[in-house]
Design a protein around this nucleic acid. Structure first.
Length: 200
DNA sequence: CAATGCGCACCCG
DNA sequence: CGGGTGCGCATTG
């Protein structure tokens, strides 16, 4: 238990990243609560103070906030930044944009600006003057809207949870036939449930 | 009780 | 397939 003293944000980031690593090693979700808890085991700060610094770390890009399975998780961007995103002539970033919007999980939708920021934080972007990320994103977001992956709301874009959700195979053919059939759908029902629960 | 460990289902590329 | 994630429950301190 240590000082109630002023500590530079950078140190906070270190503590937070440490906490995240620890929690992940326990195969648990690095939520705000767990991060606060982990840090408070070593430092005497109120949860609100920790949470506040966590937010700052996110804004600074030292920590990535990702909305997943109905709740926010926090990650160390370090691990992911090995992912390279090459912006070349005809790249299609529709999927990337859609995923970003979903993972940002902002209730009022995400602006192009924050989408760009998020992508830069989670990838090493390789671009050029003619083919830059911003440009590619403008195209991509347009396509994502057309394809109904996201929904435009003013300047913001929201993930469309009603879309043919990825991963959920929905044979539209209402094939009865074999007795117990709804087992396949049980899982997707659960998923849809909590996605809606937190999103709506 | 808190902290840790982990099997396993699920997702995504 | 391979690799990440995290729930739910078990085990340990």
């Amino acid at each position: 238990m240590c000082e109630p003293e002023e500590v530079p944000q950078q140190v906070w980031s270190t503590w937070i990243l440490e906490a995240i690593r620890k929690i992940r090693s326990q195969k648990q979700r690095p939520s705000v609560e767990r991060i606060c808890h982990a840090i408070r085991q070593h430092h005497n700060y109120h949860e609100d103070v920790v949470a506040e610094h966590l937010e700052t770390a996110v804004k600074e890009g030292a920590v990535l906030k990702v909305f997943n399975k109905g709740q926010s998780s926090y990650k160390d961007p370090g691990g992911l930044q090995s992912r390279t995103l090459r912006i070349q002539k005809g790249v299609d970033l529709t999927k990337v944009v859609t995923k970003a919007v979903r993972e940002l999980g902002e209730r009022d939708g995400s602006s192009l600006k924050s989408i760009e920021k998020y992508i830069r934080q989670s990838h090493t972007v390789e671009e050029s003057a003619e083919n830059d990320l911003k440009g590619a994103l403008r195209m991509a977001v347009k396509r994502a809207v057309t394809r109904n992956f996201v929904i435009q709301d003013g300047k913001n874009f929201k993930y469309n949870y009603n879309q043919q959700a990825p991963g959920i195979k929905k044979k539209e053919a209402p094939k009865r036939q074999s007795g117990n059939s709804d087992d396949l759908n049980a899982q997707s029902k659960v998923r849809t449930f909590y996605l809606k629960k937190y999103f709506t």
